[in-house]
Each structure stands twice: as C-alpha cells, then as structure tokens.
Design a protein around this nucleic acid. Sequence first.
DNA 1: ATGCCTGCAAAATATTTGCATGTAA
DNA 2: TTACATGCAAATATTTTGCAGGCAT
Lengths: 148, 148
Amino acid sequence: MTALFSNQRSSHGSRGPCLTAVLRMAGLRPTRQRLALADMLYGGGHRHVSAEALHAEASTDGVTVSLATVYNTLRQFKDAGLLREVTVDAARTYFDTNTSDHHHFFIEDEDRVVDIPTNDIVIEGLPEAPKGMKITHVDVVVRVKSLS
Amino acid sequence: MTALFSNQRSSHGSRGPCLTAVLRMAGLRPTRQRLALADMLYGGGHRHVSAEALHAEASTDGVTVSLATVYNTLRQFKDAGLLREVTVDAARTYFDTNTSDHHHFFIEDEDRVVDIPTNDIVIEGLPEAPKGMKITHVDVVVRVKSLS
DNA sequence: ATGCCTGCAAAATATTTGCATGTAA
DNA sequence: TTACATGCAAATATTTTGCAGGCAT
C-alpha cells in the first residue's frame, strides 16, 4: 500500500487541489484548518508528530487553529487511514504520515520517533494469534539512546 | 537473565523472607505496602498489570494502599529492574513482571497484554542504530483482535 | 438552508508531587 | 532518632467532549 499523500508537491507544483481531493475522498470537508494541517503534515516528506508539536508549529506558521481541533483532526485523519498511530511512549501519542508497513526507532533521550530506513526487517517465528483472534498489526520499536 | 522473583513460592514454601531480601537488594525498604504489592505481583506466575488494576486488586484483598503509592511503587520496582514497562497503549502504562527478553500480544478489544509464549521470534535485517546511539531494547507488539 | 466544523472551556483520565504523618532501621 | 515511606489532596499533562457560533455545500 502506498501513502495517499505521497509526492503531492512534486507531482503538481501546487498542492492545494490535491489535498482538497484527498480530504473529500476521506469524507472530510476541506476546511481551512484541515487543509493547513494536511499541508504541514504532507507538504514535504514524511513526518512524525504529536498533537502538541503540530499545534505549536501551526502557531509559528501563523495558522490559527485550536489544540482541540488539532487533536480531533489527527484522530479523523487516522480513522480515515491517512495517518498511523505509533505507540512508543505512554505519555504522548505520535502520528506517522507514512501509513505503509514499516517500523520505528524511538530516541529515548529526545522523545522522538524516526522511521527505520530499510524495509529489510523480517520477523521469524511469529506465533499464531490466540484462538479466535487475528493479527491486525505488528509493531517493532527499537529503543535507542546516545552512547553518553 | 532470569527474573529475580521467579519461583519464590515453590522454592521456600513461605515467600515473605524472599520478598524482603529482594526488596533490600534493590535498596528498597520492605514495608508492608511494598511487600503486599510484591506478593501480588510475584506470588504466582508472571503478570501484566496497570496501576489502577493493581490498586483495585489490593482493595479486594483487604490491603490498604493508596493509588499514589501503587504508582510510586511500580515505578520504583521498574527502576530497580524488577518490572519492565510495556508500552502498547498510549492511554495506560502496563508493567510486566517478566523482565527477560520476550514480546507481547496486545488484545485490542480488551486492552490486555499477553506474553508471546515462544522464544522463537527472530528479527532479521535490523538496522544499525543511528550514529552515536546504541540500542537499549527491541519491542515487538503483535496487535490482535477477535475475528468478530 | 443544512449539517458538518471549530473554538473555547470544562470534563475526563492518567500520573506525579508536596507535605504532614507514620514507620523501619 | 533519623531518614525514608505513605496517604491524601492538589497539581500536572494529555486527550476528549459539550455547546454556541461559523463555514462548506
């Protein structure tokens, strides 16, 4: 599966219409706030964000949007399959604009999530799901810290 | 590495002295509350608990302990290496009495963590840690839900 | 015009902390 | 006795929700 938003900018030069179309396809009205957040998220390469960080970035960019709307928008994007939730830190929720199958580094000193750059990870010996269950996702989080 | 608390009960018949010794070794005074919580955690087999659940269980067992003390005690045990924190759900922190290397199922419908019963999981193609970093832990979480 | 969105503030939830009291050594 | 532990309540942090007003269709 390929990320829906990939290469918005390079494929069209202007990205507004693309974002609008994608939001519509997801059943979400292309409002000013959603377009602005989507642009920040997908305007250049893939990203990992927390709600707080995205809200701060919006403020810096002069985009007026409430923190509650950022939370709600991130959840809507996630429900629409445009973002993937990454659970690495119990205190904070991260969203990844890369919705394809891949895994993560978590940099413990900085509370930061980074994609693992290769696709070579293979997990062997994975057991069957418990009876009556099916596997929805396999998450691999490699926690790292500086050598200090 | 073997869990410090394993087989307390079977190796001695009474477990009080063991728990006391382990707490002391960890630099923690063996108080009534800590002994009671340690007994609940290690008295029989390995477990996964949240602070809230452990507090509820204590109340049921007639052990008087405040929720704050449960939180603090779990953190102390974790810092002492007696528990491992498992991050699977952003809304809740789980602690695993099994501190050895192993991985987890997360049952999404029930918000419950279960050890993956085999040791056969091998992860291949794991990349190097980013420059200047070292890997502290690799977590594999297999999310499952009922077939519905 | 209609119904979905947004902002704000308040609620809900999870966890930590300050401080007076209690207890182990 | 002395330092560390506990309980309580309040503080903190994150995320969600209710509601009145706003905007997309």
